[in-house]
Computed example of a mutant assay.
Amino acid sequence: MHIVLLVLGVVAGLGFWWYRLRAAHDAAGEVVDAVGRMRGSMRRKKIRNQNQLSPLTAVNDPIVAAATILVAVATDDVALSTAREETIRAEIGKLTSPDKLEEAVIYGKWAAAQIADTAVVIDKLGPFLAERLDGAEKHGMMTMARNVCAAEGPDLPLEAQRFRRLTQKLGLEVH
């Protein structure tokens, strides 16, 4: 009888430890799954951020960059008014041909609509323009931006901040 109890005790002990090891394995699997989901989420967020900036990374022409910045500043949490769009066309039209003007304004409107934050547009395209423009052209860019914002349209609540940021990104002295 004592041998049967010994065998039952050993079997019960093995069953207990097998159950404990299986529970530990399941818990470890859940931790690994949670870490995998977190890593996947971080990877997807990074890809979303890269895709969000892709309209700006494709810009390789200063005229298109200027048009995109002007549209972004003019549509900072407001709709683009007809007067501001005409001002953008007039300002960019001084710099390029009518065909290039139309292309630049259309791309600028599309790219600015894809990026939710005007500061991101300025941060990404400001240094691009700073490398390619001389001092007079940089001041001209600021004048164009002021003319666009002065055109008739809804109030731009962050206008002063956007001008300050654009001035910094163009490498001009900030007052």
Rank of each mutant, 00 (worst) to 15 (best):
A12R: 00
K45Q: 14
M42P: 00
G108Y: 09
R39Y: 11
A150M: 09
L125T: 07
T167F: 13
I63L: 12
G140W: 01
K46E: 08
A65G: 14
A130G: 05
A119T: 13
M1D: 11
P157K: 04
G36P: 00
T143P: 07
Q52C: 03
L101V: 05
S97H: 10
M38S: 09
S41F: 02
H2T: 09
L5T: 06
V64P: 07
V59D: 04
G36S: 13
P62Q: 03
P157Y: 08
L5V: 00
A104N: 02
K100C: 03
R43M: 11
Q168P: 07
R164E: 15
I88T: 02
E86C: 00
K169Q: 15
V148P: 03
N51Q: 07
I69E: 08
L80N: 01
I47L: 12
I106S: 10
W18P: 01
L6N: 09
T82K: 01
P157N: 06
D33H: 08
R20A: 13
R146E: 11
A65W: 04
D61M: 07
Y19P: 01
V120D: 15
P154H: 12
V174K: 05
L101K: 04
I69G: 04
K94L: 14
V11D: 04
N49S: 08
E103A: 11
A34I: 00
D76G: 03
D76H: 01
G140Y: 01
L8S: 10
T118V: 04
V10C: 11
P98K: 01
R48H: 10
A72N: 04
R164M: 13
N147A: 13
A34N: 02
V32K: 12
D61W: 08
E86Y: 01
D99P: 06
M42E: 08
A67I: 07
L95G: 02
T82M: 00
A116K: 13
R165Q: 15
V31I: 09
D77K: 04
V78K: 13
H175W: 07
A150P: 04
P62Y: 09
K94E: 15
E159L: 14
A23H: 14
K124S: 15
T68A: 07
A151C: 07
K124P: 06
A74N: 06
